[in-house]
Simulated assay, not measured.
Amino acid sequence: MLKTLLAGWLALMLAACFATFSWAATPPARYKIVTGPERGTYIQIGQDLSKWVAEPAGIDLEVMPSKGSAENVQRMRYEPGVKLALVQSDVYQAYLDMANAGNPDAGSTIRPLRLIMPLYDEEIHFLVRADSPLRSINEIKDKTISVGLIGSGTAQSATTLYRLMFGQPIPEQNVQHFSNEDALAALIVKKIDVAVVVAGQPAKLFTDMNPDLLQQLRILRVDPSAPETARAQQAYFPATIRTSSYPNWLKEDVPTFTVKAFLVTYDYGLRDTVFHLNRFADSLCENFDNLQEHGHPKWKQVKLELPNLGKGWQYYPPVERRLRACIARRAEGGNGAPQEAATRRAAPRTNCTNQERLLLLCK
C-alpha cells in the first residue's frame, strides 16, 4: 500500500515538474508595437509596455519607431507581426470621418481596428525663434510652417488646427514636412517661421537638446480671448506645458492645446492571439502601478478605465472584458474579420486630396 502511494506521489511530482519545465521552455510570442520618432514620447511608452507589461505576460514585444500615428494605423492594419499601435485620437477620427464619407480605402483600413484603452494627453507645441514677433498661436496665419512628416500624427493635428482656426487649409507654398529635429534646425536658421511638434511632456526632443540651441526657441501661447481659440476648441482641449517639465528652458507655464493618445489593436479572432492579448490585458492591470512608478512621467496621467466611446470607436471585446473585470476587482480591493495574417492592401491611388496624403491612403 505504502509502495503504491509513494509511486503515485512521485508520478504527480514528475508531472508537475514536467509541466513547469514545458511552460518555461515555451518560447514567448513575438509581437511588435509601432510607436513614433526615436526621441518622442510614444517610443518610451512602447518601451515601458514591453518591459513592464508584455515581458511578464510571456510576450517578446519589439518596439518599432515610426513617423507617427497615420503610419501606425497603416502598419497595424497591414504589416505582419504588428499587434499593437499608439495612435492620436484626431488621426483615428480622421480615418473614421473619411470612411463615413465613402472613402473605401479609409474604411478597409480603420474599421477592423479596435481600442485597448485611452492613455494620456499629448501637448501640441507651436515653436518659433526666440526673437520672433509672434506671441500666440492665433498669429500663425500665412506663415511658413513645418507641420511634421506625412504619415505623422503631428501633420494631422497641425493641419486640422489651422483649418479650424482660420477656416481654410494652410496654403501649399507655406507647408513644409520636416521631421521634428529637422524642423527645429530649419527654424533656427530661418528657413521656416513655425514648427509644430506633438509630444507628451517632458519630451526627449527638448530635454536632450543642446541648451544653447534650446534658448533660441520659444513656444507660442494660446490666447483664450482670440476667436480662433474658440474655433480650435471644437476638436482640441486646453493644456499647459509646465516649467517643471523644462526647468532650464521655460520661465513660465505655457497654455496650449492637447490631443489624446490611444493604445490600439486589431479585431483578432484566432485563439493563440486572443490568448496572448488576454494575458497582456491581465499583465497591464497587474503591473499598472509599476508603469506609473517606473515608466515615463506621462503614465501618472493615465487612468485604468474604459470610458464611453464616440460613434464608430470600439474596444477590442476580449481585452475589454478582462480589463473591466480587473478594474472592478481593483475597485473592490481599496466584429471585423478575425484574420491573423496581414491583408494585402490595394495599390495607392495618385489622384488624391491633401487629407488622403496625410493619412497615407494615397500618393
Rank of each mutant, 00 (worst) to 15 (best):
P255G: 10
I140D: 10
P118A: 08
G200P: 09
A85P: 06
A195S: 12
A342D: 01
C352K: 08
A70E: 13
G200N: 08
V198I: 15
M98I: 07
P27C: 00
E356K: 08
T256H: 07
E62T: 15
W299Q: 07
N138T: 03
Q168E: 15
Q355E: 14
E332F: 00
A331I: 13
Y42C: 14
N100W: 06
T343I: 01
L270M: 03
F178S: 01
P227Q: 14
V147P: 03
P171N: 09
E286I: 05
T159I: 09
L359T: 02
V259F: 08
P348V: 06
L184C: 05
I327A: 02
E320N: 10
T265P: 05
L14N: 04
G334R: 07
I241T: 11
F206W: 14
N100D: 15
Y92P: 06
R221C: 05
E340M: 01
N180L: 02
G151L: 07
Y95K: 09
P27I: 11
E293P: 02
L6V: 11
T343P: 01
I145S: 03
W23N: 11
P247L: 04
Y162L: 10
T41M: 13
L213A: 15
N138G: 05
D105V: 08
D131V: 02
S283Y: 12
L291F: 12
N248M: 03
I145M: 09
A183M: 11
A347M: 03
N103A: 00
F166P: 08
V128Q: 08
M165S: 05
T207W: 07
E172V: 14
P80Q: 10
S22C: 07
T256S: 15
A261W: 03
A337F: 00
G8W: 03
S136D: 14
N180C: 02
L149Y: 08
G58N: 04
V197Y: 12
L84A: 09
A16P: 01
A185R: 15
Q156E: 11
T350P: 05
E79I: 04
P348H: 12
Q301H: 03
T240Q: 12
D142I: 03
S22R: 15
L304A: 10
L277S: 06
N100I: 00
P297Y: 09
L12F: 02
A261Y: 05
P348Q: 04
C352H: 12
T350R: 13
